[in-house]
Structures are given as structure tokens and as C-alpha cells.
Simulated scan of single mutants.
Amino acid sequence: MGHIELRDLDDDDADAVFEMMRDREAIAMAAFTAQDPSDRLAFDARMRRLRNDPAVTQYVVTERGGFAGTVGAWTTDDGDREVTYWIARHAWGRGVATEALRLLVSHQATRPLYARVATHNQGSVAVLEKNGFSEVSRSTAFAPGLGRETEEALYALVPTVE
């Protein structure tokens, strides 16, 4: 999978990220999204806030040098380290998300790492499990991307015991 790489997110990536995050099918899969994915002002404000937060790490995922999505990590209000990824639909089904998450995890020293996923998103569940994450709990919450309550699973990647 040497054709998948991560690079720092920069201002020039904003248009591609915004368009990717407006894909209706991807929004339905992610479920827990922005209230209004087409609100560019809210998107830009969120991007500025994230880029200025030292606890947030964001990367662009590239496939053979072209834009394929984003991955990132941040520290939650509870002090946990959580990861996220959003892969552009044109890159689905080829292992891009699995490799991008593997690369992100290799840059994160903190364990456990956490991730959240809508349980109906079996592709994303598989990505987490291939990277060693295990489900630790489930809850139901309102998902803006679906406009209704849906089930979400919390996954953890715990330290390996030697």
C-alpha cells in the first residue's frame, strides 16, 4: 500500500475537504456529521478552530499523490485521544481507509486510542477492526447526517501487553 500517504492539511485543501464532506452517501454512512454540511461559513470556522488547536492533528490522505480524504486525532474533553477519518467516495473499497488509519495510528503514541462509528457503517467498522480496534460500548444518539437517532459504537485500540 505504498501509494497511500499522509501529509499535513493546509489551506489549499479546504475546497476538496468541503466538497468531500458534502457527499450525501458519505454523510449517511458517517451519520454523526455537521448539522448543515453545505454551510461553508460554518465549515471554514470549524477548520480554523481545528487548525489552531494544538491538541488536533489533521492530515490529508493521498492515493498516488491525489486527494483521497482526511484523517485526524484530537484530545476529547475527558482527556482521551480519539481518531477520525473521512475517505472520498472515489477511494472507497480499495483499502485506502485501512492504510490511512494504520499510518495515523503509527503517528499516535497515546494508548488507548478511541474511535466512534455509526454501527450501520460496516465498511468503517471493518477498517477499525483491521487496525486492531475493538468495540467497547454502544449508545444511541441523534445523527444529523440521517436526521434521526441511530446507534453508535465506541472502539478502542489498547496497548499491547508484552
Rank of each mutant, 00 (worst) to 15 (best):
M47V: 06
S38T: 15
H90S: 14
P37F: 12
V71A: 03
R48C: 06
Y59K: 10
A68V: 07
A34H: 07
R46M: 10
V60K: 07
R51P: 00
R81F: 09
P54Y: 00
D78W: 11
D44Q: 10
A34C: 01
E63Y: 13
Y85S: 01
V56I: 05
V60P: 06
D80I: 07
V56Q: 09
V56K: 08
N52F: 00
F67W: 11
A73E: 04
F67Y: 15
W74A: 06
G79A: 08
T62I: 07
D80P: 01
D44S: 05
H90C: 05
A91T: 07
D39G: 03
A73S: 06
F67R: 09
L50G: 00
D78M: 13
G72L: 04
G69P: 01
A31K: 01
G79M: 08
T84K: 01
A31I: 02
D44T: 10
Q35K: 15
A42K: 15
S38Q: 15
R40S: 12
R64V: 09
R49E: 13
G66A: 14
Y59F: 15
A31R: 00
D77L: 13
R48Q: 08
Q35N: 13
D39S: 11
A68R: 04
R40D: 07
A55K: 03
R64K: 14
T70P: 00
A42L: 13
D53G: 00
A91F: 02
F43A: 11
R81A: 08
D78C: 05
D80M: 10
F67V: 12
W86N: 05
T62Q: 09
R48T: 14
T75P: 04
R40Y: 15
W86D: 05
T62C: 12
V83I: 14
D78R: 14
H90W: 08
A30N: 01
V60D: 09
M47E: 11
D36N: 11
R49D: 12
F43Q: 08
Y85C: 01
D77H: 12
R40F: 13
T62H: 04
T70H: 03
A88P: 00
D44C: 10
G79D: 07
P54E: 05
R89V: 10
T57I: 08
W74V: 03
E63A: 14
T62E: 12
A34S: 13
F67C: 08
F32K: 01
R40W: 13
Y59M: 08
T62G: 05
G69S: 03
T84H: 04
M47F: 13
G66N: 10
Y85V: 01
D80C: 11
G79T: 07
W74S: 08
G79H: 06
R46N: 08
D80R: 07
R89C: 09
R40C: 12
R48I: 09
D80K: 14
R49W: 08
A45Q: 11
T70Q: 03
R49A: 14
L50F: 04
Y85A: 01
W74L: 10
A55L: 06
T75G: 05
Q35D: 15
D39A: 15
V61K: 07
